[in-house]
Amino acid sequence: MRPFEFERASDNQSAIATFNDLRSADIDAVNAQIQYLAGGTTLIDLMKLDVMKPTKVIDINALQQANGNIEFKNNGLRLGAMARMSQVADHADIQQNYPVIAQALRLAASAQIRNMAAIGGNVLQRTRCTYFRDTSYANCNKRAPGSGCAALEGVNRSHAVLGVSDQCIATYPGDFAQALMALDAQVELDGPRGKRTIPFASLHKKPDQTPNIETSLTPGELITAFNVAAAPYAKRSLFLKVRDRESYEFALASAAVALDLDNSNVRQARIALGGVATVPWRAKEAEAALAGNKIDDVTAKRAADAAFADAKPREHNAFKIELGKRTLTRALLQAAAMEVPT
């Protein structure tokens, strides 16, 4: 691992102030020379691999007090970004009122990692693309812009079929982000240029021609909280994850779904897909296919077909289209069959 300066921040302002001297403020936060350290489960791993090379690391774990609260308000849920994955997953009220959030977190990683990883860092975890993680491959447009993409013609079984470009097909690896996507969460940020709130849907950027730019965060911007509205579909929501092994594995295909039903007619459907896309993927075509219709085997299947209509498979990952459709179909029918407390 390369040498770095280590600092422990005592509050948001002192953490953010360390970025004041940073020149290149126009780059994506994940590429900045200074990095925040919370749980460390992505950053330290990638520093050991020489994929991330910060010269300064700001430990923000002392901000747990300020930014780690889970609050229920009349209009919804506020999740402090320093809350650990396990705290949110084990929260009884979240399990009952926002099941898709608790389930997405419980099915992710291992018990140890869920105790460590803060949910703010969780949504920023980097892709598991082998060619990104293994620096012996020269061609990675994420690591080295313009160097090409070894995955396009490489072993791409785990790669994305949605949101891909001719520069990058790396899969977004997380689960929790899909739950936030489906529930239309907002992200509270604090940074060198002040506070702002953005829709979660605008946090991640599709690779297009610049796969190295992964988020809309500027260097020094700190995720302080996620806000989730108490929408009618939140209680009838779930997360379904399909993977190569039963536990402690990334998704091959996942679906976060939330339904607002009038008997079996869909007032509103919210759908996000994981394991199959380059970013947390909102499936608006599938939502539109369901809205106003009765939900059954036929309409659920039709929605799944719509979700993957624009999928672009490579040599080894075409199976993800059928797997993704079946995952979504099953998730929708399970959500429709849920007994929802009133």
């Binding site: 280590f6 422990r8 350290l37 749980g39 489960t41 330290i44 791993d45 018990a111």
Partner: peptide, 21 residues
């Protein structure tokens, strides 16, 4: 998981934790 230890009574991975933290 071979490096699992407790920090404040919660299990964590000591290989992905800086000693300074």
């Amino acid at each position: 998981g071979a490096c699992t230890v407790m920090m404040d009574g919660r299990r964590i991975l000591s290989c992905l934790t800086f000693a300074a933290s």
